[in-house]
Design a binder for these strands. Structure first.
Lengths: 273, 273
DNA sequence: CAAATAGTGTCTCTAAGACAATATCAC
DNA sequence: GTGATATTGTCTTAGAGACACTATTTG
């Protein structure tokens, strides 16, 4: 009878076929648009970070940053490493979304991908291409989930527009699933990954705990409100928002200045409650 | 310049190191305990399905059913196949939970695991050992999350008791993370996987959509209430429960019989709303 | 002063929780 | 009838949404 020690010493892990494992990171950021006039607050847009691929397959196409899992790292560490290598950016936090494992999703072979949503603060640096990336840019998101049937994901950066038509097939356990009807020009199945991740983020953004990471240490309540509104594509009344968010924030003694209107008190995240 | 076609024809996926990928399935079921007296409804217990390992490593230890991902299947299909091969049971539905990828979590080498919660109906068959499993049994769950610090996971089947001490390290994005302080006798890091999965299930069980799968086609409102109460370890008043669940269920014309008390109307899931 | 945002107070409506009361069966 | 669950109704309270109003700054 073989002992466990013997078994492990003779165990050949390469005897079975193994997939390659990647992470793909959907990196979100809230961006200010230019001020319309001196006293109006700037509008906010939800953007995601795409890289332009330097190598085959999908050479020159736009894609999510990501790459292969290496030994001695967790998938979270892999996601952080890849985004930093490919774009020079370090996210405040990353959130696991789900795993995409459909056979045939990658033309290179058997590759399964773990999707992460990562969230960047307002003060994050500009992305630069690097490693496998020829270029890296923020794309403005336009995505309307009409509950069922088909929906359109449009990503825009100045004159570049990436457009995919998706079908929301089902929502299992709070995670919306999409099928790609017209691929558009995004690499791999990344249109699907973006749609699923965005719908998960919209669900999470209901809870304030998950949206502080988009902002700097201190922020105005209006800024916090705009983050939630931008992600979820809704509008709420300031009075009601303040009431709801009150338990999650704490006042500081500082105020904004020079805005052409009444100064706003700066708040910070309330770590109690 | 190499074309994409050439690139793919010459691509060697084995040039990089690859992990093995498994699924582990935390299979939940609500079990009736014996009636105390002829007119009282039976109590309900939340149980999970464990198998006794036939092979090294952790030979003879109790473990979650699961196994290696094969080419040409998704991780969801893998989870369904493994639980059926190892226990002869086919779940009503499975829910992805998260991926465990800490280096060193498996003594056989680089193996990452995708955890699933699967949910069994009341009418499910008895499990049998098969394949890699010497035996398969339902274990009653005792797990109190006290929010922070350490908590104890106790799994019992008649005279077998598996006890692990865990520490709830953090809750990121609604998923509680645990570290194993005293492993107990569960194989691998399965105590962690069970704790995380259970805490996710408890969160999901707030929403009625996710708990119907524990029940047969038609059910009494009391049975539905007990499912939610058993999973979440809470108690609510029947009157309030009925009001809350009303939009999600539809009456049938049938009633229960022979219970020693007033018959209860049978309901079915309301697919609208 | 005008335009814009900051911030407060209050009304209404809905949903949740507590509790009381009635209905109906098997023994 | 008794003991159990089934089912309905109502009171109270907490929170969400709508809206009106005041405060404060810069050009």
């Amino acid at each position: 009878m073989q002992s466990e020690k013997d078994f492990l010493e003779n165990y050949d892990i390469t005897a079975f076929e193994r997939p390659s494992v990647t992470t793909d990171i959907v990196c979100f950021r809230i961006q200010n648009s230019t001020k319309e006039n001196y006293r109006k607050n700037p509008g906010k847009k939800l953007t995601i970070l795409l890289i332009q691929r330097k190598e085959h397959p999908f050479m020159d196409a736009w894609a999510l940053p990501g790459g292969f899992l290496q030994p001695n790292e967790t998938i979270e560490q892999c996601a952080m490493r890849e985004i930093s290598e490919e774009t020079g950016i370090t996210p405040v936090s990353i959130m696991p979304v789900c795993t995409f494992s459909e056979p045939g999703r990658d033309p290179r072979g058997w590759i399964i991908s773990n999707a992460f949503a990562s969230i960047l603060g307002e003060d994050s640096a500009q992305p630069v291409g690097g490693d496998d990336a020829k270029d890296a840019k923020w794309f403005e998101i336009n995505f309307e989930q009409n509950g069922s049937a088909e929906c359109i994901l449009e990503l825009t950066h100045s004159d570049i527009t990436l457009r995919s038509v998706l079908e929301e097939t089902k929502t299992r356990f709070g995670i919306a699933q999409f099928a790609i009807k017209e691929g558009g020009t995004l690499a791999f199945d990344h249109a699907r990954i973006i749609a699923t991740t965005l719908s998960v983020l919209r669900e999470k953004a209901k809870h304030f705990e998950y949206i502080f990471d988009f902002l700097p240490e201190t922020f105005t309540l209006n800024a916090l409100q705009k983050v939630q509104e931008t992600i979820m594509d809704i509008e709420v009344l300031p009075a009601n928002f303040r009431r709801k968010v009150a338990p999650f924030v704490a006042q500081t003694d500082d105020f904004t200045q020079g805005d052409g209107h009444r100064p706003a008190q700066l708040y910070k995240r309330n770590t109690q409650q």
